[in-house]
């Protein structure tokens, strides 16, 4: 298991909690399921450690829209890589609500989906590989394509915008 973020392997200093059970010590960073956040957010907001929320398919990112400045991390789970709902959740969080913290892909996260995830706003990828393999896979995936048709919030220039720029240059 290794988490790759911003072209480097990072330590996982977050604990993912279940829907119920005791909270760890106050300075430990925790990720809680959405329902638990909704039920316990008053107490969770008082913790010293970081708090993140886990979204699973079927959850609504709108439910945490008002809380985003309290959250350092949002994990989005892919129970199977073929369940693409998480891509929409990430875009809504990044592009609509301007979430600037970490969006971590967890679950069935594979090399061939990483570029799409990154384009949708994910910036951390939890892979079931050792550190070197995980880093190599993410780097290879990110380098595979250099032309993009769709504007997303990822900062990449689209083919359309580059064409526009070229035309403006020719005219000017």
């Amino acid at each position: 298991m290794a988490i790759v973020k911003h072209d480097t392997v990072i330590d996982n200093d977050w604990i993912t909690l279940d829907a119920e059970g005791d909270l760890p010590a106050g300075d430990v960073n925790i990720i809680v399921p959405l329902d638990r956040w909704k039920a316990e957010q008053d107490s969770l907001k008082g913790r010293n450690g970081g708090v993140g929320v886990l979204l699973v398919p079927g959850d609504a990112p709108e439910d945490i829209a008002a809380d985003l400045d309290r959250l350092a991390l949002i994990a989005i789970r892919f129970p199977a890589y073929t369940d693409g709902r998480g891509y929409s959740y990430a875009r809504v969080l990044r592009e609509r609500y301007g979430f600037a913290g970490e969006i971590r892909a967890v679950g069935d996260v594979l090399r061939d989906q990483i570029l799409n995830m990154h384009r949708c706003g994910f910036d951390a990828f939890d892979l079931k590989d050792d550190a070197d393999t995980a880093l190599a896979k993410v780097r290879a995936a990110m380098a595979e394509m250099t032309v993009y048709y769709q504007p997303t919030g990822d900062g990449r220039a689209t083919a359309g915008s580059l064409r526009e720029r070229r035309r403006a240059g020719q005219v000017g």
Binding site: S88, L115, R119, C120, Y148, Y149, Q150, G160
Partner: peptide, 11 residues
């Protein structure tokens, strides 16, 4: 063009 490799709508 819009639909080709649309990152959100591949799955």
């Amino acid at each position: 063009q819009w639909s080709t490799f649309h990152p959100e709508f591949t799955y």
